[in-house]
Computed example of a mutant assay.
Amino acid sequence: MLDQLNAQLARLADHPFYRGRLPREVASLEAFAREVPLMKRADLVGEMQQPGYGAFAPPVPPVRINLTPMGASLVPILHSANDLRAIEAACATHLDACGIGPGDVCMVTFGYHLFVAGLFYQSQMEARGVACIPHGPGETERAAEVARRCGVTVLAGNPSHAIKLIEAGCPVPRVFFAGGEAFTSNPALYARVQAAMPGAVLIDSFSLSECLPVARTFPGGEGVHVFDELLYAEVIDPHSGEPVADGERGELVLTHLRKELQPLVRYRTGDLTALVRTAPVHGRTVSLPGVVFGRTDAMVKVKGVKLYPSEFATVLLGVDGARRLQLELTQKPNGGDHVLLRIEGQLAHDALTHIAERFKRQTLVSADHIESNDTLANADAVIDRRHDTR
């Protein structure tokens, strides 16, 4: 990986955006984190709003321009022919691992209007000799009928919609590519898809429009494995910017290793995740076991652990009747933190116990008490009363 990073640093030494910002070479991965500055999304947006895309003006003509919303802006994402070939080559190794190739028929039910996933899946399938049906979302009955008529063997789309397709008579695919909503991190939804598609290989995927693809589950592996021939992944403390130890939660930072247009170096995604090293899975050794927990929004420190309110929603995934979560913090007589979890929705004791266990497993913080309420006035939030003097 160090050689790949140094090759990219050398290529970008005279890039208009990075000139004077990057070393031409680093001695170690630790030096890369220490000597290479972090890049914010605002940096990318600011340049792409300039005439001719500012410092990211393409040195070769783009062959594809996706538009993706970033705040109030629709930001162009540029791909050269070489960029697309590199993506297709990386995805080909994954399709091979899944046993997908000529003779398969893939229906893509992701959106195509600005949303990048539809064309992304279509391109990689076609490059591997797979027949592709670019159906897009919605029109469930028609999609199921088309899938039957054309003998679909591979399905790519939103998991909830895929279940409706199967119920409408779509044949069970041999491989299903999920995206657009939490999948492996939502046990209840994952189990519903398993039940609807017995025997199918289920693939969870994570991508960003500006970093495509990031990671996927591979047959025989655990978690989603990073396409490390395309990207170098780090996880940092969102506030200090310092790298965290493997397995610790923090902000995902990505560096393009081969991107020709709009290359990003130490790009702060704003996504909250954890990274672990694994034994090789089809050659890949970096996994995001919980995919993305939330966003690196306002942080609060509880019992010495950093919590991010946006990750609370994932704790409730798949728990029937649990709508939202509220965290109330008070101070114990001995000075420690007392943690009260309130769940919106009337839940049985077993469900509350399950939520408390998931909360601890994800955040590493134990709740001192958990209760359910019909409604919460300030849900998905932290009420911090530790410094009340009343």
Rank of each mutant, 00 (worst) to 15 (best):
M1R: 14
D3S: 14
L9I: 06
Y18S: 10
G20A: 09
L22A: 03
A27Q: 11
A31C: 05
K40T: 13
A42P: 01
L44D: 07
L44F: 11
P61G: 03
L67D: 01
D83I: 00
E88Y: 03
A90D: 02
C91W: 14
A92G: 14
T93G: 15
H94I: 02
A97Y: 09
G111Q: 10
A117T: 04
E126V: 13
G129T: 05
A143W: 01
S160T: 15
K164A: 14
V172L: 08
F183A: 01
S185A: 15
N186K: 05
G199Q: 06
V201W: 03
D204K: 06
T217A: 09
G223D: 01
H225M: 12
V226D: 06
L230M: 09
E234Q: 11
E234H: 05
I236K: 03
K259Y: 00
E260H: 01
Y267S: 04
A274P: 08
H282P: 02
G283Q: 11
T285M: 12
G290Y: 13
A298V: 14
V302H: 08
A313E: 14
A313C: 09
T314M: 12
L329T: 06
T330L: 11
H338W: 13
L341H: 02
R342M: 13
I355T: 05
E357I: 00
L364D: 00
D368V: 03
I370W: 09
D374V: 13
D380N: 15
V382Q: 05
V382S: 10
